[in-house]
Nucleic acid binder design. Structure first.
Lengths: 145, 145
DNA sequence: TCAATTACTTACGTTTCTATAACTATTATA
DNA sequence: TATAATAGTTATAGAAACGTAAGTAATTGA
C-alpha cells in the first residue's frame, strides 16, 4: 500500500469535514437578509469593493457572461453601490468602482462570512495553529471565491 | 490578553483559508455541467438519494418554502429522478424517493464534490491526520449542507 | 363529532440567473 | 487606411429561485 493512497483516503475525510463546516447555507441566507439583495449581487459588490476593475475581468471572476454582468452592474449602479468610470488607458473599457455605500454593504457581508463557527473557535490554540499551518501550505497563492 | 482572543484571531485565519479552499465555484459549475441541471436541483436529488423523506423535511433541509419544493420535485419526477410514494404512517404526507436514475445522478455529483483538491492530498500524512482529528472535533454531530 | 392543525398542492407574481445574437465604439494590425 | 479584434451594451428569451395567498385532504384533539 502506497503512501499516496493513505493520503487520498484521509484527504477525502478531511475534505468532507471541511466542506460540511463551510457549506452552511444559513450563512448565505444571512448575507442576503442583511444586504437586502441576492448572494450573487453581493458577491459582485464584494469583489469590486476590494479593487476597481474592468467589466470583463469582473465577469470572468464571477464566472458569468458579459451581457449578464452588464445587467447586474446596471442594477447595482441604480442602487448606488457602484459606479462605472472611464478607463484612461482604453476608452472601450469601463472601470467598475464601489461607492462608499457599496463598501459598507460589502463590509457587512464580509463580517458575516468571515466569522468562524463557534466550534472552530473552541479548539485548542495549538490545534488551531496546526490547522493554519497545514491549510496555508495547502492554499493556492491566488486564493479564490 | 486572553486565550479566547488568540483563538479568535487564528480561527478567523483558519476559517478564511478553509473557505477559500472549499468555495471554489468551478466545482459547482462542473456539477451542473455533468448533471445537466441546476445545482439546486442536484442538491435535492443528492439529499433524497441518501434517504427518502417527506416533502416538509426536505424543504427544511434545503431551506426553501414548501410550494417551491413542490415545483422542484414535480420537475425531478418528470425527469424520472425521484418518485413520490405514499407515507404509510400519515396519508397527508408523501415520501420522496430517488429512482435508480436519480441515484446515478447523485453519485456523479458526489464524485465531483467529494474529490479533495490536489493541494490537500499533497500534504504530509501526519498533517492530514492532525487536520482530521481537529476538524472531527470541530464538527457538529448532526452535520450540515 | 367538529374545529383546529398539519402536509402538501395550486396559482400567481417577482427577481435572479443564464445563454445567444446583433450592435456600437474603440483599438490594434496588416 | 481598411480590416480585424476587443470591450462593452442592447435585445431576447428561457430556466431557476424566491415568496405569499388560498385550496384540498388527512389528522389531532377538545
Amino acid at each position: 500500500m502506497s503512501s499516496a493512497d493513505d493520503n487520498s483516503a484521509v484527504a477525502r475525510e478531511v475534505w468532507q469535514l471541511m466542506s460540511d463546516l463551510v457549506l452552511d447555507n444559513q450563512r448565505r441566507r444571512k448575507v442576503t437578509e442583511v444586504t437586502g439583495m441576492s448572494f450573487g449581487r453581493t458577491r459582485a459588490v464584494r469583489r469590486v469593493a476590494k479593487r476597481s476593475m474592468q467589466m470583463g475581468e469582473l465577469a470572468d471572476l464571477l464566472g458569468m457572461e458579459r451581457p449578464n454582468l452588464t445587467t447586474l452592474i446596471n442594477d447595482l449602479e441604480e442602487k448606488g453601490l457602484v459606479i462605472r468610470k472611464a478607463d484612461p488607458r482604453d476608452r472601450r473599457s469601463r472601470l467598475v468602482e464601489a461607492t462608499a455605500k457599496g463598501k459598507r454593504v460589502a463590509r457587512k457581508a464580509e463580517a458575516i462570512l468571515k466569522e468562524p463557527p463557534d466550534r472552530l473557535v473552541g479548539l485548542d490554540v495549538e490545534d488551531l495553529e496546526t490547522l493554519r499551518r497545514c491549510l496555508a501550505e495547502a492554499s493556492a497563492p491566488g486564493g479564490s471565491e
